[in-house]
Amino acid sequence: KEMRNAYWEIALLPNLNNQQKRAFIRSLYDDPSQSANLLAEAKKLNDAQA
């Protein structure tokens, strides 16, 4: 469930391009235990690109 939530949050971040989203989501599938960390990194990048 945590992975699914992280997937959708990443997919809906407005300032990431599709390539960036795909990279984060690929990492999510590679290591679901890192969901919270990956989401935090994606949000950080999203904010930096705002």
Rank of each mutant, 00 (worst) to 15 (best):
A50H: 10
R26E: 04
I25T: 03
L28H: 01
P32Q: 03
Q34D: 06
K44L: 06
N37K: 13
N17P: 02
A6F: 14
L39S: 03
A11Q: 14
Q49Y: 11
A48G: 09
Y7I: 14
L38G: 01
N37W: 15
R26C: 07
I10W: 01
L16D: 00
N17R: 07
K43E: 03
Y29P: 01
L39Y: 04
N46P: 01
M3L: 12
E9P: 02
E9C: 12
L45W: 03
N37F: 13
E9K: 15
L16Y: 00
A42P: 00
A42N: 00
N15S: 05
N15D: 04
F24Y: 07
K21Y: 02
D47F: 11
A50W: 09
D31P: 01
A23C: 10
N37L: 14
N46V: 01
N15I: 01
N17F: 06
Q19C: 07
S33P: 04
I10H: 00
Q49K: 05
N15C: 04
N15Y: 15
N18Y: 14
E41M: 15
E9T: 13
M3C: 09
W8E: 07
Q19N: 11
L45M: 08
L28W: 04
F24M: 03
L13Q: 03
Y29N: 10
R26S: 06
S33F: 05
K43H: 12
A50C: 06
A23P: 01
P14C: 06
Q34Y: 05
R22H: 09
K1M: 10
I25F: 15
Q19T: 10
P32T: 03
S33W: 05
R22T: 09
A11F: 15
A40H: 09
A36M: 08
N5P: 05
N17Q: 04
D30Y: 09
N37Q: 09
K1Q: 09
E9F: 15
A40G: 06
A6R: 06
A50T: 06
W8S: 07
E41D: 09
N18P: 11
K44N: 05
L39M: 08
E41V: 11
N5V: 13
N46W: 01
L28E: 00
S27I: 08
Q19M: 06
Q49A: 10
K44F: 09
L38N: 02
N46F: 01
Q34E: 06
R26Q: 06
L16P: 00
D30I: 13
P32I: 05
Q34F: 05
A48H: 09
Q34H: 09
L28P: 00
A23I: 13
L39G: 02
N46I: 01
A36S: 11
E2W: 02
L16W: 00
A42Y: 02
N18I: 11
D30K: 11
D30R: 15
L16A: 00
K1F: 07
L39I: 08
A48D: 10
Y7M: 14
N15G: 05
A11P: 02
N5Q: 14
R26A: 06
W8L: 13
Y7T: 08
I10K: 00
R4G: 09
N37A: 06
L13V: 01
P32N: 03
D31H: 15
E9L: 15
K1L: 12
N15H: 10
P14G: 06
R22Q: 10
Q19I: 09
A6M: 13
E2N: 10
N37P: 03
N18V: 10
Q34I: 06
K21R: 10
A50P: 06
L13E: 00
K44S: 10
R22F: 13
A42H: 00
S33K: 11
Y29D: 03
K21I: 05
R4K: 11
A48Q: 11
K44E: 06
N18W: 15
N15M: 05
A40L: 10
L45K: 04
K43N: 06
R22L: 15
L38Q: 03
A48K: 11
S27C: 05
S27F: 08
S35N: 04
L12F: 11
K21F: 03
Y7W: 12
L39V: 11
L45Q: 05
K43G: 03
M3D: 07
A50G: 13
P14T: 07
Y7P: 03
P14Q: 08
L45S: 02
N46S: 05
A40V: 08
K44H: 07
K43Y: 14
P32D: 03
P14I: 08
D31F: 15
K43L: 08
A42L: 02
L16M: 02
L28S: 02
R4D: 08
S33M: 11
I25L: 13
Y29H: 07
D30T: 14
Q34M: 12
A50Y: 11
W8V: 12
L38D: 01
Y29V: 08
Q20A: 03
D31M: 13
K43R: 12
Q49L: 10
S35E: 07
A50S: 11
D31W: 11
L12P: 01
L16S: 00
A50M: 11
L45V: 10
K1S: 12
L12H: 15
S33N: 07
A48E: 14
N18L: 13
Q49S: 06
F24D: 00
N46D: 05
N46G: 02
Q49V: 08
A11V: 11
D31Q: 13
F24Q: 01
S33Q: 08
Y29E: 06
K21T: 02
Q34S: 06
S33A: 10
N17L: 06
S27Y: 08
D31G: 04
K43C: 03
D30L: 15
P14M: 09
N46T: 01
L12N: 15
Q34W: 04
N17D: 05
N5E: 11
A40K: 12
N18A: 09
A11G: 04
A11M: 14
Q19V: 12
N37S: 07
E2S: 10
E41K: 14
S33R: 08
S33D: 06
Q34R: 10
A23Q: 09
Q49I: 10
L12Q: 13
K43P: 00
M3H: 10
N18E: 11
N5M: 13
Q19L: 11
L12M: 09
Q20L: 03
A50K: 08
Y29K: 10
A6L: 11
W8G: 03
A23G: 09
S35P: 02
I10G: 00
R22E: 07
E2P: 07
Q20W: 02
Q20I: 04
Q19R: 07
S35K: 14
K21M: 03
R22P: 01
R26H: 05
S35C: 06
S33L: 06
D47K: 11
Q19H: 11
A23M: 15
K1Y: 04
E2K: 10
D47M: 11
D30C: 14
A11H: 14
Y29I: 10
A11C: 09
L38T: 05
Y29Q: 11
K43M: 08
K44I: 08
R22A: 08
E2V: 07
A36L: 10
A42R: 00
D47S: 12
N18Q: 12
R26G: 03
L45Y: 04
A23L: 14
L13R: 01
P14V: 06
Q19G: 08
A23D: 05
W8Y: 13
N5T: 14
